[in-house]
Design a protein around this nucleic acid. Structure first.
Lengths: 212, 212
DNA sequence: CAAACAATAGCGAAATCAGGTGATTTTATA
DNA sequence: TATAAAATCACCTGATTTCGCTATTGTTTG
């Protein structure tokens, strides 16, 4: 029996969900509330496997509530439903720990499917949402610079790595068993190749372009 | 009419897809190949809206092929299908520009649905895959350190930001319209708060913990 | 083999930085 | 309005860094 708690401010929708769940084999509605006041207490009193969460609600919004629930009940899967398509919402919902994100246009069967998917460890998503997630993923993850190699030699890479770790010339020299003057030479060459003029600049560039 | 090109090394599957597409209203199979040799030429000769791409294929694998196709035909949507559930594959497929990622267990109707979703600008995903994407998203995007604030004041943050940009004390002073000695003081305080002893260390930490 | 490159090393000078100490003014907030 | 926190500035010292030039020793490669 999969227990689903509903947080949805629209009375009609809320009651529809409740009815749908209680009339579907294998499902039960563990509770339905119009807002997230006392959400933690409510979920303590009415144990649930899944929370269906509306984003736009009076008082605390669904994303804040998601964070809160995840803190107190990490095992509960939270399915976000909304009419909003905004990247901002999607992004925040994911970061808050949502296990799924569906649009409100979904059919009753669609909801039941989504609940089953969530319970099985999946993350149902409207394809349109999924596309946004992929785009967000790409734009946030790929640091633009694919093929900037700067032609650093292996020794130069080692030196740069140690520089990134905040080591001084002297320490780097010790670590690589060479003289400080050699490190000076290497760093001079690194600066020339990266077109920078200070350690901080080099470190910045190295981290941004993933040279280390 | 949605034109779908198939790249799938399994002969039986390939022919099944061809049949399915040619017998579904609104769809046509623009071509079916067992590998990605001459994929660009093939797609030039047989224009397509969607490519259904297997990952595991002899010769060039589906992810490499996806990259290639996206380079030449940015408008073609590529639907990856695979039996693999590996994060590595999912990650690379997304970065390569795939518009969807479904498991091979999908039903014929499921494929048609997926094609429609892709054509409508969505990214159909098996819920299990979607979960992996969300996890990847969270782990790759949130760099571990949510609660390290270091209590930097707003001016200190500005200074740190400029330091990260590789500016010297003198330049930072000019930019903030204060004296170099003030900048020195700020940087001394920043170092104390971050527990570091050099600019490179501070920049490293700032970038890693997203303080800027 | 000669040329190019990588890695090593040195010297010197000017600039910059890291730290210590102390102090004043502004701003926020209880 | 009193107090704390933030922001400002100064002076000093020693250490470190940046950058100029030069040079030797291997290694690779056309």
């Amino acid at each position: 029996m999969i227990r689903v708690a509903i947080f949805e401010d629209n009375k009609h929708l809320r009651e529809t969900f409740e009815l749908l769940l209680n009339n579907t084999d294998g499902f039960a509605c563990s509770g339905a509330w119009p807002d997230c006041r006392n959400i933690i207490t409510n979920l303590e009193v009415y144990p649930s496997d899944i929370v269906l969460m509306d984003i736009e609600m009076p008082g605390m919004n669904g994303i804040e509530a998601t964070k809160l629930v995840k803190q107190h009940f990490p095992k509960i899967n939270i399915l976000i439903q909304t009419v909003f398509f905004e990247d901002e919402y999607i992004f925040n919902a994911i970061c808050a720990g949502a296990s799924g994100y569906i649009l409100k246009s979904t059919t009753p069967d669609g909801y039941i499917e989504a609940f089953k998917d969530v319970q099985a460890g999946g993350s149902p998503m409207t394809p349109g949402i999924a596309r946004r997630v992929l785009e967000l993923f790409k734009s946030n993850l790929q640091p633009a610079n694919p093929e900037q190699d700067y032609d650093l030699t292996s020794q130069e890479k080692k030196v740069l790595k140690l520089l990134v770790e905040g080591k001084s010339y002297k320490l780097i020299a010790q670590e690589l068993f060479v003289s400080v003057d050699t490190i000076k030479t290497h760093i001079r060459n690194i600066y020339a190749k990266l077109q920078v003029h200070s350690g901080t600049e080099a470190v910045s560039l190295a981290l941004r372009d993933k040279l280390v």
